[in-house]
Design a binder for these strands. Structure first.
Length: 451
RNA sequence: GCUCCGGUAGUAUAGUCCGGUCAAGUAUUCCGGCCUUUCGAGCCGAAGACCCGGGUCCAAAUCCCGGCCGGAGCACCA
């Protein structure tokens, strides 16, 4: 939209607490690819430690950063009192020495940290002399990508702060939990003589009823509550993709929501509406009947050839065809219909098998209904507003399971034309909803998107 | 507790900086109608909101003060 460049940067500088897992690097690339976000450049911070070291040295040499040996509690006490800690007043030369020692393994975990100087009077104590790099025992906690090669690791503010400038970032758009990080980093930018990029901090994005919290998701999967990262109950991109939510719909919605600093709770309805707009124009239509209910139609006067358009407004998309040949003395034929439609039938009423013919309901018994042929023309029932229902000739059924958004499964039959569908196709089952095909082998397995 | 943000219909968003054209626009949702061989889509119509209280002003959703509510940060996490 603005001719910007898209840089993907992996911020994997914590081998201990937020230990990155190798598979995430690729799943993030996958999600972006699916979303249609073309990555122009990619950086991984764990490859860039020498760069961070170089700038750290410069900060120390200029007296704008120092190596602090204070235990955290000691430092906090000092900083809350707006007093410098003993390390802060050391000369640049002494600090440079400490820095060298830090790199060469002279300190173990927790014994030293590099701090960037700020205003000790800053009203927010969290800003005062923030930590920039610390020691990690990578023998004990090897980094998944670079192992035990480094023992001094940068914190977010140093690594991301330097990279934002070094990579030519013009705009930083990130969650509002990073607001104070901007305040902190601005001191460093000042020292380096750099201009801080435009920063926009947005609120948390939630979607009603979906779990987006990473730790909750991971835990749920571990406990077997969720089938995986793409469980339909989750709000992950993988889950949305599996459910047939298009990347275009997601993008439209995100752009619509914009960047406000208060939290937003998106409703599925809105997402579905964006999605439906896209899908309705493109998706082919097919018949699906939920359940295993049947209807018998007698007195069918001739052979019928039904030609059903794949899309009501786009005849060029083609058709599927079924031939109905009445058999036996009673000229009968048999169809699967939705259980719900049987329930709603009333004896004596006329209903229409869509695009086929009209029948009169004669009797009902549980999962079955008996009917007689009434007439062929749609015009006959148009004025009476007879119910139009989907049907599948017995013999043309294709067993089908549909995974619903709550992970329950709706069993039924799809029409045999669906055997040609490929996984990932998103279609509409008329009067049922949009679904994404997941498998089309012995049986059709689909994920329900929405009405 | 301290340091910051923010509060417009069910949901999301425009307008707020630079007061009037906002008796508040849009999308979605809901309701009614039209149309349609899907209870889908489309079309038409209707309903629905400026957190509260003061102040400034000819005039406040917009500016000021106070309150209430919500959120974020206060890590050798990102």
């Amino acid at each position: 939209m603005y001719n910007g460049k898209f840089i993907l940067r992996f911020e994997d500088t914590d081998p201990k607490i937020k230990r990155p897992s190798l598979i995430f690097y690729d799943s993030i690339r996958q999600d972006l690819k699916w979303l249609g976000c073309k990555v122009d450049e990619e950086y991984i911070q764990s490859d860039r430690l020498p760069i961070y070291y170089e700038y750290t040295e410069r900060l120390i040499r200029d007296g704008n950063a120092y190596v602090c040996e204070c235990p955290p509690e000691e430092f906090r006490k000092k900083t809350l009192a707006k007093e410098p800690c003993p390390c802060r007043i050391l000369s640049a030369a002494e600090n440079l020495e400490r820095w060298k020692r830090m790199l060469s393994g002279g300190y173990s975990e927790g014994q030293a940290v590099v701090r960037v100087k700020t205003d000790l009077e800053h009203p927010n104590p969290a800003v005062r002399d923030w930590p920039a790099l610390r020691v990690i025992d990578t023998k004990k906690y090897p980094h998944p990508r670079v192992g035990s090669k480094y023992i001094v690791w940068p914190l977010y503010n140093l690594a991301a702060g330097l990279d934002d400038h070094l990579m030519g970032m013009t705009h930083i758009i990130r969650g509002k939990e990073h607001y104070t990080n901007m305040v902190r980093q601005k001191y460093m930018y000042e020292y380096l003589g750099w201009k801080y990029p435009e920063a926009i901090h947005y609120g948390r994005l939630k979607i009603t009823g979906a779990f987006l919290s990473k730790s909750k998701i991971v835990q749920g999967i571990k406990e077997g509550i969720y089938a995986g990262y793409d469980d339909p109950r989750l709000g992950t991109f993988a889950a949305l993709r599996k459910r047939g939510i298009t990347p275009e719909a997601i993008k439209k919605m995100i752009i619509d929501v914009g960047t406000k600093s208060n939290d937003v709770t998106l409703s599925w309805e809105n997402l579905f509406s964006y999605n439906r707009k896209i899908l309705d124009a493109t998706s082919n239509r097919y018949f699906f009947v939920a359940g295993h209910a049947k209807i018998t139609v007698k007195n069918i006067p001739k052979i019928f050839n039904a030609k059903l358009p794949l899309h009501p407004e786009k005849p060029e998309k083609g058709f599927r065809q079924y031939s109905i040949t009445p058999i036996g003395d009673e000229n009968a034929s048999f169809f699967y219909v939705a259980e719900k439609d049987i329930t709603n039938m009333e004896t004596g009423k006329i209903i229409r098998l869509m695009e086929l013919f009209n029948v009169k309901i004669e009797e009902k018994a549980g999962n079955w209904a008996g009917a007689t042929f009434a007439s062929e023309s749609y015009e006959d029932v148009r004025k009476s507003k007879a119910q139009l229902i989907q049907w599948i000739p017995v013999g043309e059924e294709y067993p089908c399971s549909i995974i619903m958004p709550d992970a329950s499964v709706t069993e039924g039959y799809a029409e045999s034309a669906c055997k040609k569908l490929k996984p990932d196709a998103i279609i509409q089952f008329e009067r049922f909803g949009f679904v994404r095909i997941n498998e089309a082998d012995e049986k059709l397995v689909a994920y329900y998107a929405h009405k």
